[in-house]
Design a protein around this nucleic acid. Structure first.
Lengths: 216, 216
DNA sequence: CAGTGTGAAGTTGTTCACAGCA
DNA sequence: TGCTGTGAACAACTTCACACTG
């Protein structure tokens, strides 16, 4: 029998990815409730908002270690804090971004990410037109400077928003200079050592789902 | 026993979402193979590239209706065409985009989407600074013009890249004027009638997964 | 053999049913 | 009664085992 310690975060058992993906949604909903001065929320209310089963919400929330009160539900404020801390959205993870094109610029300018724990501290590009410019207080460097900067700053996360063809060499460079996790916005699959974490975000996957549902 | 007709696309059984999400990745890999003049590919090769089980690749490809040849594999060229057509990436679905901020601009400028079947034909915003400008040949309109434009053009897909607080009212407007599917880039969950398709793309979900894997 | 193709087994994730509680 | 919490049933997805083919 598997014992769940549930002491909060970073427990031994791996959190299911679907749960991790749903929690930010709950967070957004909870913030809206808070803005309306609601003090308590039930799993049923959350479930209704997302058109899902309330048990699933309960189980998702259980992973964060929070306890609800029967008949009353969960304290909105505490639940927000618990999820934020559980997801490490309060940690300010530093990141380097490679490829300051349309998407890269949008990510750097996107204020939202900062309040969700992601702090892009530098951008890198090969285009002289963007090198040495500053976007949202983030300086864009030539790729050559990556080596020095990564020595000075202990950055674990790298973001790839380069053209597709540059994805692999960018990933290689990141791995060579100590990046531990890569967030790849390119449709290219990149090859990295097993100990490196890769998360692929491809808008094409979402598009595929939409078009299929539209046309079926 | 369930009979699979497999006549290609739009068959009765719903395609599993995980399969739909993986196919664009295969496509990108296949295009790279083609660029290297490779004629045939096996499910094992694809599987290896994505570090997955080859049977899963085989089953994914089977949904598209393509047949592989034993000992040889699949014809790269034909496989590309088959996937593209299966995913309706050759259909040029027209879309309206609401909210021409950083992300909205990036999507409009992002050439990739166009070659994957998405054709954003107009943008809408409330900011006079962007109204009547043109980005990548896409004209940005005032929201008031949506009604007229949606009458002239039969657009089924709407994209929300507005500030979070505007997501729901934008969705309501879209539904009122005949949009059938909504692609929501906001973390807000939107409420729409049951017959409307909603696809949520939230960068926060991916972030949650990365941070969790990094910190565990 | 080196590949596809497929039913069966296994695993993971979701929903159901119900116990417990205030 | 309205809620949490949880074990059991169920459904979806993935992997395994193996028959088949050129």
């Amino acid at each position: 029998m598997r014992v769940k310690t549930n002491s909060g975060k970073h427990e031994s058992g791996q959190i299911p990815e679907p749960t991790l993906r749903r929690l930010p949604g709950y967070l957004s909903f909870l913030k809206a409730l808070k803005a309306n001065n609601l003090e308590y929320v039930s799993s049923g209310q959350i479930a209704q908002n997302f058109k899902m089963d309330s048990t699933l919400v309960t189980k998702d929330l259980a992973y964060t270690g929070i306890k609800g009160r029967t008949k009353i539900g969960y304290e909105v404020d505490k639940l927000i804090q618990t999820i934020v801390s559980f997801l490490d959205f309060d940690q300010q993870e530093k990141a380097f971004l490679f490829g300051v094109g349309n998407l890269g610029k949008a990510l750097i300018k996107y204020q939202g990410l900062q309040s969700y724990g992601l702090h892009i501290i530098a951008g890198f590009d090969t285009d002289p037109a963007v090198i040495n410019t500053t976007l949202n207080n983030v300086k864009i460097h030539s790729i050559d400077e990556f080596r020095d900067l990564s020595r000075k700053q202990n950055v674990r996360l790298g973001i790839i928003t380069t053209p597709d063809a540059k994805a692999q060499e960018t990933a290689d460079l990141m791995v060579a200079w100590g990046i531990k996790a890569i967030w790849n916005f390119t449709p290219q699959s990149i090859k990295v050592p097993d100990n490196i974490i890769v998360e692929n975000t491809s808008v094409y996957s979402d598009l595929a789902v939409i078009l299929n549902r539209l046309n079926q």
